[in-house]
């Protein structure tokens, strides 16, 4: 029933306590947290640094602005509403279609303007933010995801999570939404995580609820044929976030827009551990390898380093 902890240690598997003490506590200076915890701030600094992000359409900061909600949304057919300080995908509303004042979620469920009104009101009163702080609602351009992932995703945008350690891409996975995860790409909600080979961008393993799967549970497509396009570009994009955020242990979520290419969706100062299961590899080994590399390298060289050392033997 239980794994031998010494064996896990030997495999370099990162546990929650070690992550909290050594990586989050040791690498991430708390003063930079607001940059990633507040998606609005992330967007601003990313845009300033020339990092590609989905376009911000509008922000709603006060309840009083909700009276003009109809005008604000008037020109948008499809959009995403999210709390600027939400965590774990909470409070995100994805509208893919609109007929007059009726809005449709990705799963086809229809919403009236009053429903959206209520959701935004919840966001503003801090329901989804850490510690219940009053929050800001962001209305963002909906990412039109690249059809290459259509087969591997159920009602939602699959995203690519890359762990950046000290600026080096250390591990990556594709997170595919499922029926169970309600179109969200969060693994603990039932999304499928697919480990990605750092050298090639090819799929390695897939897991759902921490156990291996080979096919997408809803679409039935086999993950083994999956190959992420623009792989090196994605790694470069994610590695460049290190300079912007100063966070040594960082999770970068990337989506692939069919017109715009890879976009940074959000950053995470406390990325989870499931990525190790998706890759069937312990993260500590890779972090240690990066720790041994003492030269100061620029973004492109760091990506080359990672592709060289963390490429899988499965190629």
């Amino acid at each position: 029933m239980f794994a031998n902890p010494f064996k896990l240690k030997k495999l370099g598997i990162l546990g929650m306590n070690k992550r909290n003490i050594h990586y989050i506590g040791g690498q991430n200076n708390r003063k930079y947290y607001p940059l990633v915890d507040n998606k609005l701030k992330t967007k601003v600094i990313a845009e300033d640094a020339g990092i590609a992000v989905p376009k911000l359409l509008a922000t709603i900061e006060r309840q009083s602005q909700l009276r003009k909600l109809k005008d604000i949304l008037a020109s948008y057919e499809k959009f995403v509403i999210k709390p600027a300080q939400g965590s774990a995908g909470k409070g995100i509303l994805v509208i893919v279609k609109r007929e007059g004042d009726t809005f449709f979620k990705a799963n086809g469920q229809s919403l009236e303007l009053t429903d959206i009104h209520r959701d935004i009101s919840n966001i503003l009163s801090g329901l989804y933010s850490l510690g219940g702080k009053p929050d800001v609602a962001m209305i963002e351009q909906l990412v039109e995801f690249d059809p290459i992932f259509e087969r591997y995703s159920y009602e939602g945008v699959p995203d690519i999570r890359v762990i950046i350690y000290k600026g080096y891409p250390a591990m990556a996975m594709l997170r595919c939404s499922t029926k169970e995860s309600d179109g969200k790409a969060n693994l603990h909600q039932g999304a499928v995580g697919v480990g990605i080979d750092m050298a090639s961008g090819k799929a390695l393993f897939a897991v759902q609820h921490d156990s291996p799967v080979t096919k997408h549970p809803d679409t039935g497509y086999d993950f083994s044929e999956l190959q992420i396009p623009h792989w090196e570009k994605m790694l470069l994009l994610s590695a460049s976030c290190y300079e912007v955020t100063h966070l040594g242990y960082l999770g970068v979520d990337i989506v692939l827009d069919k017109n715009l290419g890879p976009l940074i969706l959000e950053l995470n100062a406390r990325p989870g551990l499931a990525i190790q299961i998706a890759n069937q590899t312990g993260a500590v080994k890779r972090f240690d390898k990066i720790d041994e590399q003492l030269d100061k390298l620029d973004i492109a060289d760091r990506v080359k380093f990672s592709m060289k050392h963390f490429g899988s033997i499965l190629k």
Binding site: F2, A3, N17, I277
Partner: peptide, 19 residues
């Protein structure tokens, strides 16, 4: 607060990787 070892729940969670 400085214990950085595995949690009991993680021994179950990562069991598939140890095999």
């Amino acid at each position: 607060g400085r214990y950085s070892g595995y949690r009991l729940s993680e021994l179950i969670r990562f069991k598939s990787m140890a095999n």
